[in-house]
Design a protein around this nucleic acid. Structure first.
Length: 283
DNA sequence: AGTCGCCTGGTA
DNA sequence: TACCAGGCGACT
């Protein structure tokens, strides 16, 4: 569920509540959520202070005292909320109690979410954060120029750019005027520029609206995002394109449900035989 | 690059 | 009942 804008929303809501706070106690309600183990978190966390909360792509990074780092990935349905705002206790997977008595709850319907605690020297490799590409909002976009292959795969590839997921990938393609099945190596410099602009724009719009709530995403106070109201293509199968009026289609690209306006989005496909193709049609 | 598995719930 | 879902890693 959560992509970069949703994770950024969570961070912004969480930061003033947790930075500088000290853990009093941690309780696991689902062992598989925690690495290296729930027991390690229960034994190590008490007494540790949260010095800084930050993000890389879809990962939430708690920098703790004593050279420790706690890394959280929400995956599809992971969610933080404070005790007083927790709607449904059925999917509670962990409880973080601070020395001031407040309790931060981690819920996760599907149990894909991961919370890891490691020494600073190990957390990058243990959580695969060392393999992530640049975060397009924090670091800018560095690695698209030399990419090859299907556009949507590239956008979803966290090692290329960290933070884009299925919703924003489709929105970015629409804004770029590019069919997600296009080959990245076929983009000319103008199209590449437009694509980069769209990545930053779409993600920033998502952040501005506190994320997209299709069904599950909630902020730390149980609040829905607003960006679903601004989506141009995602989830709009058979609805008219806001630009041209033709109906939005749903396809499967990169193994994911994919929404496009075939009229507005240009397909830059690979030319099958290079031999008898005289016309170097760039479109 | 595509498919499966991890889980659970919502919807057709 | 079957299929789908904001993710991602392992495998083919």
């Amino acid at each position: 569920m959560p992509e970069l804008p949703e994770v950024e929303t969570v961070i912004r809501q969480l930061r003033p509540q947790v930075e500088g706070r000290k853990f009093w106690k941690f309780e696991s309600k689902n062992a598989s959520t925690f690495k290296p183990s729930a027991t390690v978190l229960e034994e190590i966390l008490p007494g540790k202070r949260i010095e800084k909360l930050r993000r890389h792509g879809k990962y939430i990074i708690f920098e703790l005292s004593d050279q420790l780092v706690m890394v959280v990935h929400l995956r599809m349905t992971g969610m933080f909320s404070f005790e007083e705002d927790l709607q449904n206790k059925s999917f509670l997977r962990g409880i973080f109690t601070f020395t001031n008595g407040r309790r931060l709850m981690f819920s996760d319907i599907r149990k894909f979410g991961q919370i890891c605690l490691y020494p600073r020297s190990e957390f990058m490799e243990k959580t695969n954060i060392d393999q992530l590409g640049f975060d397009p909002i924090i670091d800018g976009i560095e690695c698209l120029n030399f990419s090859r292959g299907i556009l949507k795969n590239t956008l979803l590839n966290q090692r290329c750019i960290a933070g884009i997921g299925n919703i924003y990938a489709d929105e970015i393609c629409f804004r770029s005027g590019l069919d997600p099945r296009s080959r990245v190596e076929k983009l000319d410099s103008k199209q590449m520029h437009r694509l980069k602009e769209s990545i930053v724009y779409c993600l920033q719009e998502g952040i501005k609206h506190n994320g997209t709530t299709i069904s599950d995403f909630r902020g730390t106070r149980g609040d829905s995002g607003k960006h679903q109201k601004y989506l141009q293509v995602y989830g709009r199968k058979d609805d008219p394109c806001y630009k041209c009026g033709s109906l939005i289609e749903k396809l499967r690209v990169a193994g994911r449900g994919t929404y496009i306006c075939v009229n507005c989005q240009l397909l830059l496909s690979s030319q099958i035989p290079a031999s008898n193709k005289k016309s170097a049609k760039s479109n």
